[in-house]
Write a protein that binds this DNA or RNA. Structure first.
Length: 420
DNA sequence: AAGGAGGGCAACCGCATGTAC
DNA sequence: TGTACATGCGGTTGCCCTCCT
């Protein structure tokens, strides 16, 4: 380590390098006594020859009592990968999803371990795309991805209704397909779905007796069928995630497509539903109109977005569609019944620190803040200005493991879900 | 046993942002 | 509005440890 002073504290006599146990003890004692309202005053109060910045780092990254030490679990690793796919190298934001972990720790873990694993799998750690996939292959990837989706049931919620109608993917019109594709980055997370956690309070469920094609589904405002749920809950993000529905940034559309193309997602039978955040729709529209960045413009064929939409042909109906549908329906019935039993466990309200709203008693009608968030979205959004996107909002709604969103800003006021 | 290579990780650097004046 | 300072963050450095030859 260089033994030169910080530019921020060059006037001070500061020690550099590793911290000794004695220094740690002084810092802990000081913060326990005085807190750390002003880091610049901490060195003096603690009797340390360190600058405030160094004290802060040491405390945040090492001495904080709520830190979880030790190696990362497989679940933590999965979370990092999933969130990184959406947020990129925003380590502080990623770390917020991992209680007890620091941004520095996550960053080091990424650089030393995950990055290599992804590369070994042939994935670009920056984009999470297959390295072999190129921009010129996006159009065919899209077609392949469509084919992969053909067997899936897409749930579209009717306007002003809590009822979802099931559609075979291939029955959707082109714009609906595009929308689904635009949300598909969540699907890889959905493949991890195993069981609805028992720790969630369900205020209502829809009737399981509804006639087909109306499938029994849960109140989208409250059910969280995802294994990723518990970390959000533990991280006190549940409230915002439910109130401000999930977000999938269409900037990752190519990533989604390549993942589906590779078979990494979209093929494993799971029972869950996924909805789309309105921000993703807004973003998708912006994204789709960006000639420089959207997959259509880079397809190599010179087709515009509109042309690409027009060129999309409904996939051929599957021969055993109805039979498959019946099987799916029966399976869904069984799963739904199971889920109802699991979900009706009552838990005490939990409060979000920021606004003290009960996190597990949120009704579907609680849309005020969602609307506010929607309105706060940037007017322009595409890959090129991705950095301008409201990451705080996106992060607060990063339930991209396929939760719920209101698509009232487009798509005929429909909500969407799917069963893959 | 010695030393070189590589990995893990703590800590630093520099920039961006927020805030007070 | 401009400036100074504090804080936060991502990128980078370099020490230390382990493994391999």
């Amino acid at each position: 380590m260089q033994q030169m002073g910080h530019h921020c504290c060059s006037k001070q006599k500061v020690k550099r390098g590793l911290w000794s146990p004695e220094e740690d003890e002084k810092l802990i004692r000081c913060i326990a006594t005085h807190g750390h309202g002003c880091w610049s005053s901490v060195p003096k109060l603690a009797g340390l020859e360190r600058c405030g910045k160094s004290c802060r780092l040491r405390w945040i990254n090492y001495l904080r009592p709520d830190l979880k030490r030790g190696s990362f679990s497989a679940q933590e690793e999965r979370i990092i990968i999933d969130v990184h796919r959406i947020l990129g190298n925003r380590w502080a934001q990623i770390a917020k999803h991992l209680p007890g972990r620091t941004d520095n720790e996550v960053k080091n873990f990424w650089n030393s371990c995950i990055k290599k694993k992804l590369m070994a799998q042939g994935l670009d750690p920056k984009t999470h795309n297959l390295v072999s996939s190129s921009a010129s292959g996006c159009a065919s990837s899209y077609n392949n991805a469509c084919n992969n989706l053909n067997n899936h049931h897409i749930y579209l919620q009717q306007p002003n209704s809590s009822v979802y109608q099931s559609h075979q993917y291939h029955q959707l019109n082109p714009s609906q397909k595009l929308m689904v594709m635009g949300t598909a980055p969540s699907m890889d997370m959905m493949t991890n779905t195993q069981e609805i956690p028992a720790t969630f309070n369900v205020t209502s469920t829809l009737s399981v007796q509804q006639p087909r094609p109306y499938r029994p589904l849960y109140d989208p405002a409250v059910s969280i069928p995802s294994t990723n749920f518990d970390y959000y809950q533990n991280n006190n993000l549940t409230n915002s995630n439910i109130k401000y529905p999930s977000s999938n940034v269409p900037a990752n559309l190519e990533s989604c497509v390549s993942l589906m193309d590779s078979g990494s997602i979209g093929h494993k039978p799971v029972s869950c539903s996924s909805l789309v955040d309105p921000s993703s729709v807004i973003g998708f529209e912006q994204f789709s109109s960006s000639e420089d960045n959207c997959m259509w413009a880079s397809s190599g064929s010179g087709e515009s977005f509109e042309e690409a939409v027009a060129a999309m042909q409904p996939a051929q109906e599957l021969p055993d569609c109805e039979e498959q549908d019946e099987q799916d329906y029966q399976q869904q019935q069984r799963q739904d019944q199971k889920n109802v039993n699991v979900l009706t466990v009552e838990e005490p309200f939990e409060f979000d620190e920021s606004d003290e709203v009960p996190v597990n008693d949120i009704s579907a009608g609680d849309t005020d803040k969602t609307d506010h968030q929607i309105n706060s979205l940037p007017s322009s959004f595409n890959n090129a200005n991705f950095s301008n996107f409201d990451f705080e909002f996106m992060d607060s709604t990063i339930m991209s493991c396929g939760m719920y969103g209101n698509m009232s800003s487009s798509m005929d006021d429909q909500l969407i879900a799917w069963d893959c």
